[in-house]
Structures are given as C-alpha cells and as structure tokens.
C-alpha cells in the first residue's frame, strides 16, 4: 500500500446488511468526516441500506453519492472506478467476502474493515488478507466503535 494520502481524494464506503443499527450512524459519521475534510465519498450497498440513508438525510448533508453494490463491484472489476480509501462495514460472513473482494480488486489501496455486531471475534478471525481492522461488539450503540474509528483515522479530536 503506497502513496496513501492523509485525506483520501476518493473514498468508497461499502455497507453490509442494515440489520445492525450502529452501521447507519457510523456510515454517516465516516462519510461526514471524510466529506468535511475534502474527500469525494461514494457509498455502496444494497437498495435497502441506501434507502435508509437517503430517507435519513434528505438534504444530503452527510451523503452525496450512492451506488448499488453489484454495480459498484462491476465498475471496480472493469477498472471504471477507483478510490484511495475503501471502508467496509462487516457484521456478517457475507460482508467479509465483500471486503476480501475489495482487497483483491484494489490491492494497493488503503482498506479499512470495520468489524462489529454481537460477536465480532469469529468474523475478525476470517480476515486473512491485509487490511486495517477496527473491531468492537456494537449492534445498537455506536459510541465505542466511533471512538476507535476516530483514532484510526486521526479524528480523535473531532467533536463530530
């Protein structure tokens, strides 16, 4: 992983199944912090998770660009889309498969996998590819995980 800008020019946030409420709050948190620091942020996910974000942020204060996950994967495979930073939210086995796919498709880019949910330990153990991991047992309350995210991204002094 070389030439990683401190503030990524292009960031891609990959969301998993929306059944864990902490994901949505933290997706807004990460997107907002990246956006306010000048990053162009794209959020990819299934239609349900994208609709949750759009309904929650009707004036696009936090999110700007969204894309259905399958289309995003296709564009990355076809070299039509790239990013400097990819953040994957993972609270189930499927999301780890998506993170592994992003690692394979974007080998030189910074990849941060946020592992959360009721039992994140076994999921973390599945990650056998190079990435930065942020792990916490979070389902409903995002605060502890938010603190860890802030530390990894250097947003620790942020009040957002």
């Amino acid at each position: 992983m070389t030439d990683i800008p401190v503030t990524p020019k292009k960031a891609l946030i990959v969301l998993g199944c929306p059944e864990a409420p902490a994901q949505q709050a933290l997706a807004f948190h990460v997107a907002h912090n990246l956006k306010t620091r000048g990053s162009e942020v794209l959020i990819a996910g299934n239609p349900s998770v994208l609709n949750l974000l759009k309904v929650s942020d009707p004036e696009n204060h936090y999110i700007t660009n969204t894309m259905v996950l399958e289309k995003c994967i296709a564009e990355v495979v076809e070299k039509k889309r790239d990013c400097d930073l990819c953040v994957v939210f993972a609270h189930n086995d499927a999301a780890i498969a998506y993170a592994a796919t992003m690692r394979y498709l974007l080998p030189e880019r910074r990849l941060v996998v946020i592992v959360f949910g009721k039992d994140p330990g076994p999921l973390e153990a599945e990650i056998n590819f190079p990435c930065e991991k942020i792990v916490d047992k979070a389902v409903h309350n995002p605060m502890q995980l938010k603190r860890k995210i802030n530390e990894v991204f250097g947003w620790a002094v942020s009040r957002t």
Binding site: G16, G45, N46, A94, I96, Y98, T101
Partner: peptide, 25 residues
C-alpha cells in the same frame, strides 16, 4: 464475490457449483 481462491465444482461434466454472495443473506 468472495475470499480468494474461490472454488468452483463441476458435476456430471455439465453443471457448475459456485458460491453466490448477497449482503443480507
């Protein structure tokens, strides 16, 4: 999608067995 390497099985010479991943399922 998946963790590489992804295994594909061939059955009866004409059927493919493969993993298919969806975010929620």
């Amino acid at each position: 999608i998946g963790l590489p390497p992804i295994a594909l099985g061939i059955d009866e010479g004409k059927k493919i067995i493969f993993p298919y991943t969806k975010p929620c399922h």
